[in-house]
Structures are given as C-alpha cells and as structure tokens.
C-alpha cells in the first residue's frame, strides 16, 4: 500500500560556515493511511523541524517528502494544504490575538472558496466539542484547552486526510491533556485520518500511536511499535535511556 506520508533521506541544515548545524540528518519513515505515527525525542532533536519541512513552512531541505506517493512541490500548492494540515504546539501562539475565532476559522474556507461557511464553522466547532457561540469569542477569552480545540477545528475545516501534530498537548494543563488527546484519537478513527505526531512525552505517544520513531541529534535511531515501547523492548541504548527517564518522571 502507498504510504500516506513518506520522507526519504530528509536532511535540513541551519546556519552557515562554522555555525552550520544539521538539524535533521537523512531521516526516513513511512506512515500508512489511517495510521498514527509518532516521533519521539528530547527537545532540539529535530522532530518539529521534520514537521515544518513536510508542511513546506521550511522548504530549504534535501531529500524527498512524498504525500500519497507524490513528491510534494516546492513551494507547496494550495491543493497540498487541502490534504495536509498541522496543529501547533502552543495554542497561545497559534491563534491570531486580534481576530475573532470566527475570522480565524473562516479564513481557510475563504482561501479555498468553500460554500456554507457558517454551517461548516458551526459543524466543526461541534466536532471538537465546543458550543457554536465560541465563534464569537476572541482568543484571550478562551482557556488553553479550548484554544487548542479551535486550532484542531481550523486544521479540520479543509477536510485534510493527513494531520501533523506538533506536541499538541504539551502546552496544556495535565487535566485537559487527556480531553484533547481523546478528541484527536476519536477524530482519527471517525475520519480515517493519518497522523504524524511529535512529542517528547512517551506516555502520550504510546497512547496515541501504533508505531514510533525515536530521534536524537537529528537522526532517527530506532523505529519500533507502540507495543514494544510499552513493554520496554527497545533495541538501542538511547531508547532504553528514554524509557527509564520517562519512568523516573512518572514516579516522581
């Protein structure tokens, strides 16, 4: 089966001369349609950089980004964004502070010339568990969890098949994390979405994903199933360390 998302030998470098850093070093993975694929690693390991390269926010990379087996064009086309959408880590930064939620949600519909805008906005707010009145709020009137639900709603409006999730719950209180994760899980099952999810939290990844790539210092060092991760059957030393560190914080 053609993978929904595939990256091959993706390499991204920042800076020039002596300050040159390889943020991502020939990373490759495949995510099958309907699968939730996780990327885990500590901060600075290059996992978010991969997502930004896939979306084309940073198209200064070498290697291949394939969506449904097709090479993604540089720069990305509007059609690409109808297939691939992304939810950002910080819901306090990803919603325009001066625009009403309704304006934020109407924007993708305007750009792609969708009809029945108000119906679609009301429907998508309902899908993410928010009352229709939230369309008439400003971001500062919403809690973090509510904001992240709006960000998810925005990503869903174009009816994409692939959703990139950049630590979607790490900026939220523990008490609302579960709600957002369950929402994302339900949306994936209901709509047959493919997820590529980045996190530094092993438990979040183990809960959400079926397969996981482990990243450190820009390289993918191991790829394993979530079951293997839960059972602590990791092959590389780094992954075992990561598991131990995670258990340490769980007991703390």
């Amino acid at each position: 089966m053609t993978p929904a998302v595939e990256i091959r030998d993706l390499t991204i470098t920042f800076g020039q001369g002596r300050a040159r850093v390889k943020a991502v070093d020939s990373a490759s993975f495949r995510a099958a349609p309907g699968e939730a694929f996780g990327i885990i690693g500590e901060s600075g390991s290059g996992k978010s950089t991969i997502l930004r390269a896939i979306t084309g926010l940073n198209d200064d990379y070498t290697g291949d980004v394939l969506i449904d087996g097709q090479q993604a064009q540089k720069p990305r086309t509007k059609a690409f964004f109808k297939t691939v959408q992304m939810v950002f880590q910080d819901p306090y930064g990803s919603l325009h502070p001066r625009r009403m939620i309704r304006a934020t949600l109407a924007e993708p519909l305007e750009i792609h010339r969708f009809d029945r805008k108000d119906d679609r906005i009301a429907q998508v707010l309902n899908d993410v568990g928010l009352a229709p009145e939230f369309a008439y709020r400003y971001p500062h009137q919403l809690s973090g969890g509510q904001r992240q639900r709006v960000a998810v709603a925005r990503a869903l409006l174009l009816e994409p098949r692939i959703l990139l999730l950049d630590e979607p719950t790490s900026a939220l209180d523990v008490s609302v994390q579960a709600g957002v994760l369950n929402l994302l899980d339900r949306l994936r099952r209901d709509r047959g979405l493919t997820y590529v999810m980045v996190s530094h939290d092993l438990r979040v990844i183990a809960h959400m994903c079926s397969r996981v790539a482990v990243m450190t210092q820009g390289r993918i060092v191991e790829e394993l199933s979530a079951d293997a991760l839960r059972d602590q059957r990791a092959e590389t030393e780094y992954t075992q360390q990561l598991i131990r560190a995670s258990r340490g914080t769980a007991h703390a």
């Binding site: 109808k82 959408q85 950002f88 993708p108």
Partner: peptide, 23 residues
C-alpha cells in the same frame, strides 16, 4: 505560529500582510 498557521491554510503573501501582519 499564527502566521505559520495562516501560511499552511494556503494564504497568499498579500493576504498575510493585509489580514495578519497589518492588524
């Protein structure tokens, strides 16, 4: 991030400057 989010909705540069940066 909110400019990046608008970019991956497919917003043009003109729209980004007029609707997101200028406000």
């Amino acid at each position: 991030d909110y400019i990046a989010a608008a970019r991956i909705q497919g917003a043009s540069r003109f729209r980004l400057i007029l609707r997101h940066v200028m406000p």
